Amino acid sequence: MTRPLLLLGAALLFSPALMAQQMKRELGDFNFTLGTTPSRSMAQGLISPSATGAFHGGLDLSHANGWYIGQYAPSMGVAPGSTLRLDSYIGYKHHFDSTLGYEVGLIHYSQPNIAGADSHALYGGISVLGSRFGGALRDNPSNRTGTLFADFGQIPLLNADLTVKLAHHQLGTPFTIGDGSQVSAFSDWSLELSRPWLGIDLNLIYSNSNLNGGGCDAYAGINTYCESVVTLKAQRSFF
């Protein structure tokens, strides 16, 4: 997939004529999806679970035999201070029946406007009785990351979806903080409850890491903030 194709897709995403978050079409044995949210179940949890910019979107092409290819831009780089990010992936997904399946794939992360920012990740997971459990290993020389992801689906008593993520980061070069000590590795995690309400997606997120104080200068993980934070996010799609 080329950058012009992605930008064309993004233009379609923000057309007021579209009435859904995802537009799907069948092309023979292929299914084509264009939308503002990642269409891959495992990729949504392991590639870009949330957008980093105001404008985001992607496209996905899958075959009836289980193979798929796609590209998602968590940031289109059009907002001030943001840069274009592209997450491209290829993978295979198979269901044994309605309760059990698996998925494996390869992700390529890139920031075309920044030299040397590319990296890769292998991901995979299983779906069991409506829940999803996955993991990914990202090969980035400056920060090698292993991620575990679990989406438990809707919790009956809370009437909300529960998602948990845990990551461990190994820095390629130890980071020296103010007191002279070094940080060579750290872990972070997040727990998210989400549910729709009056057309709005409500998300309650708790995030934290094992770094604190001056050690947070070395933080570059899956969360927005290094230390313990509770965030309430309300998001409404334009279409």
Rank of each mutant, 00 (worst) to 15 (best):
A136E: 05
N31L: 03
P4H: 02
D97Y: 03
A136H: 00
L27T: 00
G221N: 01
G101Q: 03
S88H: 07
V104L: 10
F152Q: 08
A121Y: 04
E227D: 14
G130N: 03
K24W: 03
N65R: 13
G53C: 10
T176E: 14
N159W: 09
I205K: 14
D118Y: 03
A185N: 15
D29I: 05
I205V: 14
D60P: 11
I200F: 05
M1N: 12
L204K: 02
P156W: 01
H169V: 01
G199H: 00
M42W: 00
G57S: 10
S187Y: 04
L157N: 08
A43Y: 13
S62D: 12
T37G: 09
L46K: 00
N212L: 06
S75C: 12
G221W: 02
G221F: 04
T99Y: 07
Q111A: 09
P49K: 02
Y109M: 02
S194D: 06
L232A: 08
A218K: 01
S75V: 13
M23Q: 11
D217W: 01
G153V: 07
T52I: 12
Q71H: 13
S82D: 15
S209D: 08
N159Y: 10
S110V: 11
R236Q: 13
W197G: 05
Y109C: 02
V78F: 13
N31S: 13
L204A: 11
V128M: 11
L34K: 03
Y92T: 04
L100F: 15
F152A: 09
T99I: 10
V230I: 13
T147S: 13
Y102L: 10
S62V: 11
G91S: 02
R144W: 00
A64Y: 09
S41T: 14
F32V: 10
L198Y: 05
K165P: 14
A234T: 05
T224V: 08
M76T: 15
L34I: 05
E227Y: 02
Y123S: 04
D29Q: 10
K24A: 12
F239M: 07
Y109Q: 08
L34N: 04
K93H: 11
K165H: 10
D179T: 02
S50F: 13
S41C: 08
F152S: 10
S207Q: 15
L162V: 14
S194T: 07
P141M: 00
L202F: 12
D179G: 04
V104Y: 05
Q44W: 08
D139K: 00
A185T: 11
A20C: 02
P112H: 02
E192I: 14
V128A: 09
E26F: 04
S237G: 09
K93Q: 15
T83N: 15
G135T: 01
